[in-house]
Design a protein around this nucleic acid. Structure first.
Lengths: 174, 174
DNA sequence: GTTAGTGCAAACCTTTTGCAGCTCT
DNA sequence: AGAGCTGCAAAAGGTTTGCACTAAC
């Protein structure tokens, strides 16, 4: 089990298994992935209302430095926070839909090939690799096309005076 | 030329080519890559002392939204800032040495394969992809090994009383 | 009993926003 | 002329730090 192997690794290095860390490790383990510091903090607070946000940051930093979790950005779709996942699974890429935010995971041989080629090409020792891909998922592609079309109609409908070709306004989140 | 194609693309969309933007575009273009907002700002200030940091952020954001530059994290080796590079070159991965900070670029077929496989596997439309790899470069691997060895000697030399196996202290930047 | 770890408050760094005034086209 | 852009100041968001106290081993 993942949790146990992480705990073991920590214990072995003389890192104390405090109550707070137990809570956080358990959450990271069972929630699976894509938790950022704030969400993790909110979840942890339910189990221990006194647990501090700073402890969450410190724990995550320690786990990352120990190579026990990986840090992701998920293309900053939501904001500039970081996401964490335990480092057990096979290497995988994260595929983020820039319209609905859905995150998929891609495991596949190109990833291993990539790693190997980089190692042999540069004589580089790869410790961590992160591949993030942004675009539109199958579902959003059609919705997106419709949105663009609607926008075009609106813009043309506005029938502006001179200005030969109307510079289209860009849609914007938030 | 890159600069011209960017300028053209902007003009075409009715984006104004202000003095500030000309300066910033020129810097981004000729400095090549791996500039973050602050460095870009510092460089720009030399050409126009009144140019504001906020303008740099706004310009970068606009260029990114227009798909004219790519945003990188470079594994947050230095800090949490973002780096930018023009989007002309073929897709490539960034390989960052976690000891000396050197950044290499890797172009190679696994990247194209990866993209294609993701597109066909999920029916996903890939707009941008970012692969960052961290580890030790050929040069630092040997230095690193020596460092670890020295540290081990030091720790053993300290001849601590009980505590059978000494939990090694981790080296730290900053 | 030690020493690592925690909580709290406050700082820090990067980036964004509101608004008045300036400037491209 | 007028929308788009800039500068300024101030805020926001995410994360880190200093320090005294607490708890794991």
């Amino acid at each position: 089990m993942v949790l146990d192997s992480i705990k073991g690794s920590l214990k072995e290095r003389g890192v104390r298994l405090t109550r707070q860390r137990q809570i956080l490790l358990e959450l990271i383990d069972k929630t699976g992935e894509h938790l950022d510091a704030e969400s993790l903090f909110q979840l942890a607070k339910e189990k221990d209302p006194k647990l501090n946000r700073v402890t969450v940051y410190r724990t995550l930093k320690m786990l990352k430095a120990s190579g026990l979790v990986d840090e992701l950005d998920l293309m900053h779709y939501v904001g500039d926070q970081h996401y964490y996942e335990t480092r057990l699974k096979q290497e995988h890429a994260h595929v983020i839909c820039l319209r609905c935010g859905k995150v998929e995971e891609f495991f596949g041989e190109p990833l291993q090939r990539l790693r190997k080629q980089i190692e042999s090409h540069f004589g580089f020792q790869v410790l961590l690799a992160r591949t993030e891909v942004g675009g539109y998922c199958a579902h959003c592609q059609t919705l997106r096309a419709r949105e663009v079309e609607e926008l075009r109609m609106l813009t043309l409908g506005a029938a502006r005076p001179a200005a030969a070709r109307a510079p289209r306004k860009r849609a914007r989140r938030s």
